[in-house]
Every structure is written in structure tokens, then in C-alpha cells.
Amino acid sequence: MNTKNGSFMTDFILLGFSDRPQLEHIISGVAFIFYVVTLVGNTTIILVSYLDSQLHTPMYFFLSNLSFLDLCYATSIIPQMLVNLWGPTKSITYGGCALQFFFALDLGATECLLLAMMAYDRYAAVCQPLHYTVVMHPQLCQKMVLTSWLGGLGSSLITCSLTLKLPRCGHREVDNFVCEMPALLKMACVYSKVIEVVVYALGVIFLLVPLSLILISYAIITQTVSRIKSTARWRKVLNTCGSHLTVVTLFYGTIIYMYMKPQNSTSQDEGKFLTLFYTIVTPTLNPVIYTLRNKDVKNAVKRILYVEKWSAKS
């Protein structure tokens, strides 16, 4: 039997909740609203961090990259999802599916590393405040961000090339809203021990190792914060670190639960809702969390709006 027959260059069908059209109508409305909020929120953070000179610091340099990453991630998935939810057909081309799969893995792995870099930045700011500008100099920040992007790219190239080469024996139906790894692996008609090993190895490298470094950083930060006597500085540390910790909990918690537990222990509907959460909810919450908990961003927005208003009157 030719297992490769029909495995390449064919359109895929993204099933989603096609058996429950009313639920899909609700999901499409929610996804559209969240996507608009994602675009506005993350674009605002990028522009404010660029336009306000007081935010030209390592923390906001990393935050701008995180916002840009969330913009790319949401845009690579949600528009196609909405087309399929609103349109009569739910198909996606082989090339479109491959690109969607590639960017989802690339940007997801990049965010894992970037959040770890941001944790180190918080460690340097809290535990080494007198040497912070020396430790977190612009060249180091740029190298850290570049390492995150290149690391995500490398892991995505490896995983995508192995997954997309699996024979599917003519299977075209992806039982999810997007072309993501668990659903594509379930389409394969052969078992691949190589991919299983690679996935768990990359999971350790891009999930468990960065998360361990984040936890170590915050353990040291906690010890330092406990010795701070200034109430104002103590609150400021909690605000900036609290925002990052909230984002880390949402992102890592969902991804680890999705990718590191055995696939056969997760129901298909549960996997779909988890996919929806980290696809449409997490990119939306990141700018909201940082904006609501951060007075610097709020004040920067007010300054920019005041300058524009004053310029318009002049």
C-alpha cells in the first residue's frame, strides 16, 4: 500500500465545531471582537513605547517585541479562522495550512524564550538596580531578542519539516479550527517515534527550561522584595513583576497542558477550546494586563494624547 498517496499538496478541511453551527456563530463573534482588541491593544503598546522617550528602557523594548509577536500570531490564525467560520466552506490550502502551522510554532516558541528574557530583565532591575543600565545595555537586549526569534525559527523548521512529511493516506480533515500540531499528528496513518522524541525534546528546551529559569528568577526576586522597606518601590516592583507573572501563568499553563500531556488523555473538544484560548484570548490579555497594571504606560498614553491635542490647537 502506498502510504504517501494523497498526502501532499491537497486542501485540508478545518472541521472546528461544524457539527454545532450555532456554537460556531458565537465563537466567530467572540473571535472577531478579541482580534480587534488584540490589534488595538498591541499596536498601542508598540507605538507608545516608541514615541515616548521615557519608555525607551529594556523592559518596554521586550514588551514591544512581545506585542509585535502577539500581533503576528493572531494575524496568522484568526483571519483564516473567521473566513472558515463565516463562509460556506471550511477548506484551507496545503500551503496555507503549512504556513499557519509554521508561524504558530515559530511564534509560540519565540514567546517562550522571550518571556524568559523578560524575567531576567526583571531580576536585573530588582536585584541589581545600581548596575541595571550597565547589565541590560542595548546591545545585550538586542542579542537576547534576536536569540529568541532565531530559536523559535529553528524549532519550527525542525518540527514542521518532520510533521508535514508524515503520510496521511488521503486524510484531509483537521479536527480543529487551525492547523496545529496535535490535530495534524492525529491525521497521520503511521506512528513516528522520531517526532514524539523531537516534540518532547523541544518541549523541554522551549517550555520547561525557560519556565525553570523564570521560576528561579522570581524566587530570587521574592527574597529581594522581602527586604525592601520602601512601600512605594515595593508596590512598583509588584506591579511590573505581577504583570509579567500573570502573562507567564496564562501562556505557559495553557501550552504545557496542551503539548506536554499525552495526547490521548485530552478530549477533542477540550483540545479545541484550549486552542481557542491561547489563539484568541492570550494575545488579547497581554496588552490589557500590562496596561491596567502599569502606570508608566497609562501616563505615556496621556502625554502623547496631550501633545497631539496641543499641537492640533496650535
Rank of each mutant, 00 (worst) to 15 (best):
I280Y: 03
D296E: 14
D269H: 07
L274M: 08
K272W: 00
R235M: 08
K295G: 01
P283V: 03
V248L: 04
Y306D: 13
Y290K: 05
F277E: 04
W310D: 11
L292I: 11
K302P: 01
G242M: 10
Y290V: 12
G271E: 12
K236L: 09
V281P: 03
V281W: 04
I255L: 14
N239D: 07
T240C: 03
I255S: 05
Y306P: 00
T254Y: 01
K272Q: 09
K272A: 09
L274A: 09
T240W: 02
T246G: 05
Y306M: 13
K309G: 00
L238G: 04
V248C: 14
Y257L: 11
G253N: 14
T249S: 12
F251P: 05
T291L: 15
K261T: 11
S243K: 05
V248R: 11
N294C: 15
C241V: 01
L274I: 11
Y290Q: 02
T284D: 10
R235N: 14
N299W: 08
N264S: 14
T254N: 14
N286G: 04
N294P: 03
H244L: 15
V248W: 08
T279M: 01
Y257T: 10
M258A: 09
V248G: 06
I255W: 15
L292F: 11
T284L: 10
C241Y: 02
Y252G: 08
F273S: 01
H244I: 07
F277W: 05
I304E: 15
K272M: 11
A300N: 05
L274S: 02
Y259F: 15
T249C: 06
S265Q: 02
V288A: 15
L238P: 01
M258K: 14
K302V: 12
N299Y: 10
I289M: 03
T246E: 09
T246C: 15
Y257G: 05
S243E: 07
N239K: 12
S265H: 03
G271Q: 13
I280Q: 04
E308P: 00
L245N: 08
G271W: 06
T284C: 11
R235G: 06
Y259A: 04
T266H: 08
N239Q: 13
W310N: 11
R293P: 00
N299V: 05
W310G: 00
I280W: 00
T240F: 07
Y252A: 04
Y259P: 05
P287Y: 01
M260G: 00
Y306K: 15
V307M: 14
E270C: 08
L305G: 03
I289D: 01
T275W: 06
D296N: 07
V288F: 12
N286Y: 04
V301K: 11
I304V: 15
K261Y: 09
T240R: 09
M260S: 09
T282G: 00
T266A: 03
R293W: 03
T279Q: 02
R303S: 05
Y259M: 08
N299A: 12
C241D: 10
K261S: 12
T282Q: 02
Y306N: 13
N294G: 10
R293L: 09
S243Y: 03
T254C: 10
V297K: 07
I289A: 06
Q263N: 04
L285Y: 09
K309I: 04
A300F: 10
T291N: 03
Y278S: 03
S265G: 00
T284G: 07
W310Y: 11
E308S: 15
V247L: 09
F273N: 02
K302I: 04
V237A: 11
Y306W: 10
Y290P: 04
S243V: 02
H244T: 14
V307C: 13
Y257C: 08
F251W: 13
